[in-house]
Write a protein that binds this DNA or RNA. Sequence first.
DNA 1: TTGTACGCGTTATCAG
DNA 2: CTGATAACGCGTACAA
Lengths: 347, 347
Amino acid sequence: MARVTIKDIARISGYSKTTVSFAFNDPSRIGRDTREKILRIADELGYIPDPVARNLSLRRHGTIGLLLPEVISFAFYNPYLSQIVQGIGEVCERENHSLTLIPPIRESLMEGIRRAAVDGLITIGLEPGMEAVEFIQRRHLPFVAIDGRVGGGFPVVGIDDFTAAGTVMRHVLDLGHRRIAIVAFGREPKLSTGSHVKSQRLSGYREALEGVDPELPDEVTYVYAAPSLDGGRQAARTLLDGRERPTAIVAMSDILAVGIIDALQGAGISVPDDISVVGFDDIPEASLVRPQLTTVSQPGYEKGRHAADSLMSLIADQESPGHIVLHAELVVRASSAAPDTVSSNSR
Amino acid sequence: MARVTIKDIARISGYSKTTVSFAFNDPSRIGRDTREKILRIADELGYIPDPVARNLSLRRHGTIGLLLPEVISFAFYNPYLSQIVQGIGEVCERENHSLTLIPPIRESLMEGIRRAAVDGLITIGLEPGMEAVEFIQRRHLPFVAIDGRVGGGFPVVGIDDFTAAGTVMRHVLDLGHRRIAIVAFGREPKLSTGSHVKSQRLSGYREALEGVDPELPDEVTYVYAAPSLDGGRQAARTLLDGRERPTAIVAMSDILAVGIIDALQGAGISVPDDISVVGFDDIPEASLVRPQLTTVSQPGYEKGRHAADSLMSLIADQESPGHIVLHAELVVRASSAAPDTVSSNSR
DNA sequence: TTGTACGCGTTATCAG
DNA sequence: CTGATAACGCGTACAA
């Protein structure tokens, strides 16, 4: 049997489409008998209104989109994304919305934005001036950016990455480390490119380094890695193969730090006795691994929740809810310690 | 400025809607000059076709839905779901689809299914006879079930949970453990209720126990926990507070096992010296924690990938691709060992 | 209280 | 060969 449409119900019941629609959506507009008759027929035929046609009429979709900077199969290697999704999810459930994950197509966000049948978008790391931003605005889609740069006429939810990065780097420096490696995510080896978050954190690291010694930023080893466990493992191997081993590794995200620790331990290196490792994010895994990870706690769940809240009010009011800067703080655990003064770990 | 529709382009260019649409979707049907003129005007006005109207016409949505058994904010506490999502994502990206996460609304899947504007659904743990299944079928939505029960006329992707559970339990028994606790997920304390996966695993555990001693299944302590780190931690505390401590804890999922180990270590109990802990799933975290977790490796990523592949062929062919049973195997790591024969850990 | 007509993009079918 | 008409699916402003 083919799909049952409102037209079928109208034809069989003898009423018009309008009346059938009212029977479901605005019962007070029609007579009780009329309604009962229509509902009975609809039930018998198993009528379910086509959601797409419904959405088209209502100009509501009951879905918000999450525009991912990476393909789904890769993005979820980082539990940090799970936390953001959870926070968004809390709001979705409150508002009875679903959540559409929109991956880039052929390395571009455009096509995903073009085809998104959603009430609004949450983006990760989108910045003023990017082509994707213009495109979203041309579609008149309400949107909120997580981890973006302020100043493009859209609300941004984030933390002060510059300050947070400085805090964790100063912790490492205060412990006495000077041979330091920074493991950044992304593929670009240049400071000036890449996301706002990345450049902010790098700048924060460098400022802390300069505070100790103006030449220190240039003595630091930089390694770039994909934000996943394996990315961290590879970064660790790269560092171990290097000429001079660092006494501390500062990773730009926890998933990298955890992968680094795993690889170091696999190579028989003790953390933090031989090498200290610190991260960024404070994902749940940070306190599960041994040694527990020293890191900067930034609230991924809260970022998602606030972004979704802002988006909902944007959708409802058309009024911009303003930027939100969430709190981040250093969490000192067991993966960082003073460097071994005997320097037994250099080769 | 208001949204630009195809009608505006038609009006301004002087052609009909049809001709404008052909300019984008079937250029061979109209003259070159006509096309160029239309495209120029559309570009100037920033015309983007409404995706919903487009989907309605095309009867394609470019999205598949993942029907979650739990609200998003809770479901993603378990990294196992991330793996499934990644696997689905791989196919989505290949097919240029997005992925819509559909949480239950007011503890019911119905409303989510009713409103899902998707090409098809992947469900987790749905079984023949459930109201939700009928509903999906009434909507003529193609769908594939992950971790479901075979026999409802829809394809199922899973593993042999009964055998896999038996394998890990026999490993524990072979080590010599007899005082065993089983930590199951879900709230139902009865064997007969809950999901197929849960009952299969419980049955597998019990059969292995019976193989050693017919009375053993009834001497086992059962604890029920939410499938999250905290669920595992709470379960561990419940067990520690119990009259007689187990020498081995068999958890129905890794996230539970990892939480259990965390709580045990927090209480000063050594794993596996004092208590052995085994899990189920082999999530990435299983090999990160110390001691590394003994578990059953089941391919969450592959489940997602196969389910999405099957769904895509179901959408394309309307032909059922058949069930898929993936391989699972025992992975012995460091969290399981023979019980301390001096029995120093009972109180 | 109920029906007509419109909005949205695509395309089968028809007209020139 | 080129282009227009009408139908699909639903909700609802407006008319009757």
